[in-house]
């Protein structure tokens, strides 16, 4: 009897380990290829998760390309500025909507939920952005997605748990609504802001489709769009501006791998934080993305 259980446990572990390795190895393989000696990369198998030789030439080359540095900075700007804006707009709306006795709360919520489930066509969104004169203006992707209604509702759930008495006390002391929000409410709900901030940051960093439609000039390209052109479409003209390089010493596969890593790194760097807040938020709020 006891032996049977151990065999079962062993099988379970083998299943889980296989799944984990099938997820992890392709990612590690890309990482390994990006830091290997380009001459050895063609001989690397897909299983190999350690580098062959060591060379940072791929990264040097990629960052010497003005298009890459430009789109990296663009993505970074959109993600940070956009996340802050989203938090401010979503946070203050969630605060307002959770004030007890707010008149017209019901119709307001209906409005937000309609906005959540009925998505306009990309054609009309494009026209709107064009009419606002925001096409090929990097701010468009900062403003776009200022509020995501799922996250608004998640935030409202957090806020509903803040004791009302604290706010009432502050108001009696003569604090106005705005100062109550910034000075008392915000610090009390740090976890809510961190959680929803993670949600927004991941969405914004990963945004591909809308960026590719709204930002089409070289100066406004974002990293995901560049990655799609170069790695997915295999369009090497995207990197044609590598000057004075002996092309025979290069391997296009390892250059692609390095590009993938660059786009992945910010997410991986945030991953511990993501696990702490994002996963916790999903567990607590039951929000489906």
């Amino acid at each position: 009897m006891k032996k049977k259980i151990t065999i079962g446990q062993l099988l379970i572990r083998i299943c889980l380990l296989t799944a984990a390795l099938l997820i992890l190895i392709p990612i590690l393989n890309i990482l390994a290829k990006s830091i290997s000696n380009p001459k050895l990369v063609p001989y690397m198998s897909g299983w190999q998760f350690w580098p062959s030789g060591f060379d940072l030439i791929n990264y040097k080359l990629i960052f010497s390309n003005s298009l890459v540095t430009r789109s990296f900075l663009n993505s970074l700007f959109i993600t940070t500025a956009g996340t802050m804006l989203s938090l401010l707009v979503t946070g203050s709306a969630a605060y307002a909507l959770t004030r007890p006795g707010l008149p017209f709360k019901k119709p307001l919520m209906v409005f937000f939920i309609i906005m959540m489930i009925f998505e306009p066509s990309i054609i009309q969104e494009y026209f709107v952005i064009k009419d606002l004169n925001l096409l090929n203006n990097i701010w468009v992707m900062v403003l776009y997605n200022s509020v995501n209604v799922y996250y608004l509702i998640l935030m409202m759930r957090f806020f509903e748990e803040t004791p009302i008495a604290l706010i009432e006390a502050a108001k009696i002391d003569g604090a106005g609504e705005l100062s109550v929000f910034f000075r008392i409410f915000l610090p009390l709900n740090k976890i809510a802001f961190m959680t929803v901030g993670m949600f927004y940051a991941v969405v914004r960093w990963n945004e591909y489709f809308k960026s590719s439609v709204f930002l089409q000039t070289r100066d406004t390209t974002v990293l995901q769009v560049f990655l799609k052109q170069f790695v997915v479409n295999g369009d090497s003209t995207a990197i044609a501006s590598y000057a004075n390089v002996d092309l025979t010493s290069l391997n296009i596969g390892s250059l692609k791998a390095a590009t993938i890593v660059i786009v992945m790194v910010p997410i991986l760097a945030m991953y511990p934080l993501i696990l702490k807040y994002y996963t916790g938020g999903v567990m607590a709020g039951g929000v489906k993305e």
Binding site: I23, I30, V202, K256, A257, I274
Partner: peptide, 18 residues
């Protein structure tokens, strides 16, 4: 196993094509 959920489809396509 949670990790790929946070990667964009562009990255995933890059990894899968490889």
């Amino acid at each position: 196993s949670y990790m790929p959920h946070f990667l964009s489809w562009v990255i995933i396509a890059g990894i899968w094509i490889d």
